[in-house]
Structures are given as structure tokens and as C-alpha cells.
């Protein structure tokens, strides 16, 4: 059996990683909650955000954390534009079409990244990437701690937007009652685009928080999206607190099963949970009934 120190350290690391997973799941669950589709381009958008962070660092020497301030508004704008100008008009009101269009967009982005950057894996390394904080007997990676804090801040911000601002309330209104919302003068097309933009903005923040410790290549998004999808199902489709709690749980499970079963089997725990949730509580922890 492992010593409690190692177990606790694995749990801490799991929670820290889980918060970033949660951030990625947040965008997915938000878009699902309002547009009622799984955004297949989620992973590709994350990959392009990570390339953007990497590019700003390599070309302009901008710190990845600082680049969040640049990349996030850009990705919000891109997301808003793509929904308003591409997905919305092409979908013609049919959710099934949106699914196919986001799939098309993901193929397009991944191949554009491949054409532009090749399939090489790249990373940003600085002294900070490897710095650790000693907390009693535990060693905690500083960039992961920053990632954890950043994810919590973004989740809190998003929660505030959704529950306290008119824009956020309009998003929640459109999610459940499109006709009622348009009769209040809420522009449904604008709300869709806003939601998609917020989802992309969350990915941009995640990219900035990930890059100090992670690598990027055009296909990097896939691994994250699989996990994010599990989190969304576990937390309840469309639920913001569900995404956060689900993310932390999945991070914990991944880290512990990695420790107990070996690194290569670490993700088994995640998919066992995925199957169990589908079997026992298909609506997830915080999900509303359909």
C-alpha cells in the first residue's frame, strides 16, 4: 500500500488537474445547455487556442498567463462570429445540422493547423513550468496551482454572468423557452452566438493555463474533449456547478487510478465512471430531467 503522503499528493494533483478539465467541460456544457448539441469542434478550438498561446510566446515572448488577456477576447469574438455567420445560417433551425456543421468545422480547423504547423508537438518551457511549492510534506506544482485558481475564478465569473446579468438570464431563458424569450424581445440568434463565444472564451483561458505544463499539436484537443464529455455527463448536461464538481471528481479519479493501476491505465477509472453514470443516474449529479 502507498504511504498516505503519496496518496494525498496524488489527490491534490488530481484536483488541480481536474479544475482545468472542468474549465474545458464548462464551455461544452454551456453550449449543450443552450443549443442542445454537442459541439464537435470543441477540441479543435482548444487546440487552436493553445497554438495561439504558444505562438504569442514564441513570436512575441508573451507569457502564457498574460496571453490569456489577449487570446480570450479574440476567441470570444471568433466564437460569436462563427455561430452568427456560419453555424446559425447553415443550420436552418435544425439541431442535427448544427452537429454536422461543428464536426465539419473541427475537421477544417485540425487540418488548417496541420497545414500551418505540421504534426510536431510543441511546448513552452520556462523555469516556472517546473517550479514547485512545498506545503508541509507535499510538493505542489506551481503552474498547476495557478491553473486551479484560474479555473475557479473563471467558473465563478461565469456563474456570476449566468445568474446576475441580463445577458446570462437571457441565455438561461433561451435554453428552455425560445418562443417565450423572443416574445420578450430577446434576440435568440444573438444569445446563441453569445453562448458559443463564452464557450470559446473558456477554452482560451484553459489554453493559457495549460500551456506552461502541457504540449500542443493539432490533435491535442481530442484527449481533453473525451474527458470533458465524461465530466459533462457526470455533472449533468448543461449544469455549470455540475461541470466544476464533475471536473474535480474526474481529476481525482484519474490521478488515483493512475497511481493505483499505473499511468497507462489511469484513464480507465474515468470511463468506468462514465458507464456507471449512464447506467445509474443518466441525468448526472446536477442535471435536470429532460
Amino acid at each position: 500500500m502507498y504511504s498516505p503522503t503519496i496518496l494525498i499528493e496524488a489527490m491534490i494533483n488530481g484536483l488541480l488537474t481536474g479544475a482545468i478539465y472542468a474549465l474545458i467541460a464548462l464551455g461544452l456544457t454551456l453550449v449543450y445547455g443552450v443549443l442542445h448539441i454537442i459541439n464537435f469542434a470543441h477540441g479543435a478550438i482548444l487546440a487552436s487556442a493553445m497554438f495561439a498561446v504558444w505562438g504569442l510566446n514564441v513570436l512575441a515572448g508573451i507569457d502564457p498567463y498574460l496571453s490569456i488577456l489577449v487570446v480570450t477576447p479574440i476567441f470570444f469574438g471568433l466564437g460569436y462570429g462563427v455561430q452568427r455567420l456560419v453555424i446559425g445560417p447553415a443550420a436552418k433551425g435544425d439541431d442535427g445540422n448544427i452537429l454536422l456543421i461543428t464536426l465539419g468545422i473541427s475537421i477544417f480547423i485540425e487540418n488548417a493547423l496541420l497545414a500551418g504547423f505540421g504534426s510536431d508537438t510543441r511546448s513552452i518551457s520556462s523555469d516556472f513550468s517546473f517550479s514547485v511549492i512545498e506545503a508541509g510534506p507535499f510538493l505542489i506544482s506551481s503552474p498547476r496551482l495557478v491553473g486551479f485558481a484560474g479555473s475557479l475564478v473563471v467558473t465563478a465569473l461565469l456563474w456570476f454572468i449566468m445568474s446576475r446579468t441580463d445577458a446570462g438570464k437571457a441565455i438561461r431563458a433561451v435554453a428552455k423557452e425560445k418562443l417565450g424569450a423572443s416574445l420578450m424581445g430577446i434576440d435568440v440568434g444573438h444569445v446563441y452566438a453569445l453562448t458559443f463565444g463564452l464557450g470559446c472564451a473558456a477554452l482560451a483561458v484553459a489554453a493559457g493555463l495549460l500551456m506552461p505544463t502541457f504540449y500542443v499539436n493539432p490533435r491535442v484537443g481530442g484527449a481533453f474533449v473525451n474527458i470533458a464529455f465524461t465530466i459533462v455527463v457526470l455533472g449533468g448536461m448543461g449544469s455549470i456547478p455540475g461541470a466544476m464538481i464533475g471536473g474535480l471528481l474526474i481529476g481525482l479519479v484519474e490521478s488515483l487510478s493512475g497511481l493505483l493501476l499505473g499511468e497507462s491505465l489511469g484513464q480507465i477509472g474515468i470511463f468506468v465512471i462514465f458507464i456507471l453514470v449512464l447506467l445509474l443516474k443518466p441525468t448526472g449529479l446536477f442535471g435536470a430531467k429532460a
Binding site: R172, A173, K176, G180, L183
Partner: peptide
């Protein structure tokens, strides 16, 4: 049919 926002 009212069309109120049931989740709010």
C-alpha cells in the same frame, strides 16, 4: 401556453 421560463 404561457411560455414562462420554467428553469428560472
Amino acid at each position: 401556453g404561457r411560455k414562462i421560463f420554467p428553469n428560472m
